[in-house]
């Protein structure tokens, strides 16, 4: 199976790296263990020959490289580019520069605007949340006041009563949301009106519908103008709190709801 050094490297063929890696030497006789001396010697001869040949070839190539280099060097200096070529490349570069600059400026405008919008929306949302929370606090205080003060500690309420209260609070929350939305829409309409007065062309159609939707207590509060948020906030909150009087609860429940409140309060008082 194993090829011997002699089989695989017939004279005349060049020695390859694979030949060296895969060479197998035959065993000598039992009297002389180890590789056959002759085979090893012959192979080493061939390796030596191959190395010598490669060295010679390398030297020859080096000479040729030097000669070619010298030739190229003699032909220097390189030909100067024509004015036409220079201006052509200059124009191409300018075009590329312009495209890059335009892309960068487009991205700058887009990102700046998006960031500005993001900040504005965040700010608006914060103000809304603040107003709602404050309104809810005030409404809660009012309910407690109407109900005859805070509940004394240690009162045992039945599950039914608690459920009743939960239902009431849910209805109340719903009413809060509805009223707040209506109020904010009315404010928005006001802003648009004010803006329209200063720049009539900017308002496409006179908007009257939102004004009718506006709840009654609101007209006292001046429409908030663009300006620092804290200035607008108290007005909003105040008006929202006014809106959240008992009479403004959901349809049909206007009479029931307050009674529920007093009922619940009475329950608490009694126990």
């Amino acid at each position: 199976m194993t090829m011997t050094a002699d089989d695989m490297t017939p004279r005349g063929r060049r020695l390859t790296p694979a030949d060296v890696r895969e060479v197998r030497f035959a065993r000598s006789t039992i009297l002389h263990p180890g590789y056959s001396d002759t085979e090893v010697d012959r192979f080493l001869d061939r390796v030596g020959e191959e190395l010598a040949r490669l060295h010679a070839e390398k030297a020859e190539l080096r000479d040729r490289v030097q000669a070619l280099r010298a030739q190229v060097g003699d032909e220097q200096p390189r030909e100067a580019p024509t004015a036409h070529a220079v201006s052509l490349l200059a124009v191409a570069q300018q075009t590329a520069d312009r495209y890059v600059a335009e892309a960068e400026s487009f991205s700058r405008v887009m990102v700046s605007e998006a960031q500005q919008q993001y900040e504005e929306q965040l700010q608006t949302a914060r103000e809304k949340v603040g107003a709602m929370i404050q309104a809810a606090h005030e409404a809660a205080a009012r309910i407690v006041a109407d109900g005859g003060g805070p509940a004394p500690a240690g009162d045992a309420r039945t599950a039914e009563e608690l459920q009743e209260q939960v239902a009431y609070l849910q209805a109340f929350g719903q009413a809060c949301r509805t009223q707040l939305r209506a109020y904010l829409e009315a404010l928005l309409a006001d802003v648009e009106q004010a803006w329209g007065r200063s720049d009539p062309a900017a308002v496409p159609v006179p908007r009257s519908a939102p004004r009718t939707a506006r709840p009654t207590p609101a007209p006292e509060s001046p429409p908030p103008v663009a300006g620092p948020a804290p200035a607008a906030e108290p007005t909003t909150v105040e008006a929202a709190a006014v809106l959240l009087g008992e009479q403004s609860l959901g349809p049909g429940s206007a009479d029931d709801a307050p009674r529920q409140v007093s009922g619940a309060g009475a329950t608490l008082d009694r126990s």
Binding site: R78, A80, P81, A85, V86, S87, L89, A90, Q93, A96, D97, V100, A101
Partner: peptide, 18 residues
């Protein structure tokens, strides 16, 4: 433009927009 025409190998040392 002159530099890149005489020595194109120098172009890669610079960014796209010059």
């Amino acid at each position: 433009a002159h530099l890149f025409l005489t020595h194109p190998e120098t172009r890669q040392l610079f960014p796209v927009s010059m």
